[in-house]
Amino acid sequence: MKKLLFIFCFLICANAFSQILSSSVEKKTIALGEVDHIVITINNLSNEKVSAAPENELLPFHFEEVKDSISQTQDVYYRRIEFAVFEEGKFTIPELEFKVGGKILKTIPYEIDVINTAQKTDQINDIMNNKEVKLEVTDYWQLYKFYILAAIALIALIIAIIIIVKYGRKSKDSPVVATNQTLKELDSLKKKKYVETGNYRSFYVELIDISRKFITKQYRLPADVLLTDDLVDLMKKNNTISQENERVVEDVFLRGDLVKFAKTFPDKETMEKDLSEITEFVKRSSKDLEFENLRKDV
């Protein structure tokens, strides 16, 4: 009898001073995505440290932990985990381990049944009726301003490219530019002193070359490849160059051919006169082009 009483007292004392783990799950059957929770409590800690999986990592894969809160006092460890499951079926929360001092405590396993409560015949209603909203001009601008600005920028770029391609090159080949460039070349020829030194051959070679390049560029005639006789015939048939300018070109070019083949030896006055007449011809060329443009318009 005394032995039984001793054993009974021993068991009471042991239970009084040992840690007690308890756990509970709110629902064993939940809807798809519904939030459920499990609560774990450990009593009689006596300042013992509790070790377990960290927050949001205690439950297995299929259980999406929504909230994991832990609190501990000298005697009680309390942990509440809110979770949801987003797949239909039966899922098990296995034994969860908690280490208290050198002791391992485990919860009991729980089987959770997850069901889909939605039916194919269920009617889905909007929370609110559709409301018609009237948009103002400023609203449309806010909606489409980036598209409008991009379209404007694209159109401006295309116009800029067309202008550059159409007029960019023409500016370099314009009548004024060609005239000024040729006048500079004639002035450079004068400064070479071919007239003063009697170097008539070099003088006429360069004078004719300058004149041919000018006619080619200014009048769009192939003067750089045609023989003098052919060029004169073309000028007369084309009617682009005035008769006065035709006469100057014909006289100077024919004399240049004679000098080139040593059939004539011009004097200083003739060379000066030819340079002067070619210079005036270049200056008068703009009038030829103006007349040609008027004739085309008519």
Rank of each mutant, 00 (worst) to 15 (best):
K3N: 11
L105K: 09
D126R: 05
A31D: 11
P54G: 08
I161C: 08
D267K: 13
Y77L: 02
K283R: 13
T240N: 09
R295H: 01
Y78H: 15
N130P: 08
V35F: 09
K99G: 10
D139M: 10
V248G: 02
K296A: 04
K283T: 01
N293A: 04
G102D: 15
A262R: 12
E269D: 12
L4M: 11
Y194L: 06
D75V: 00
R212K: 08
I162N: 05
L258P: 06
M128T: 03
K236R: 15
I115P: 00
L59G: 04
P60W: 08
D233W: 09
L183F: 04
W141Y: 15
F61P: 00
V249M: 10
E280S: 15
Y219C: 11
D224H: 03
S46R: 09
L143P: 03
T138G: 14
E34W: 02
F281M: 13
T138S: 15
M128S: 02
F203L: 13
Y147N: 08
L157R: 05
G256T: 07
E292N: 07
Y140P: 01
F214Y: 14
K217G: 09
K172F: 09
K193M: 10
S22C: 09
N44M: 04
V282D: 07
L189S: 05
E88Q: 05
N116C: 00
N180Y: 13
E34V: 02
D288A: 09
L135C: 01
M235S: 05
V252T: 06
D288T: 12
L11M: 11
V195T: 05
A153V: 04
A14H: 02
F203H: 07
E206G: 10
S23R: 02
V177P: 10
Y77A: 12
G101V: 02
N44S: 09
G101C: 04
E88L: 13
I152V: 14
F253A: 12
K2W: 07
L135I: 12
K192V: 00
A14Q: 06
V137L: 15
F6Y: 03
C9P: 04
C13R: 03
F91A: 10
V133L: 12
K287Q: 13
A84H: 00
N116W: 00
A160Q: 10
F86Q: 09
N130I: 11
K145N: 14
K260I: 05
W141Q: 04
N238V: 06
L189G: 01
S286H: 05
V177N: 10
F281Y: 13
L58H: 06
L96F: 01
H37N: 10
Y200G: 11
S69V: 11
R284M: 00
A178W: 01
K120A: 02
L221N: 03
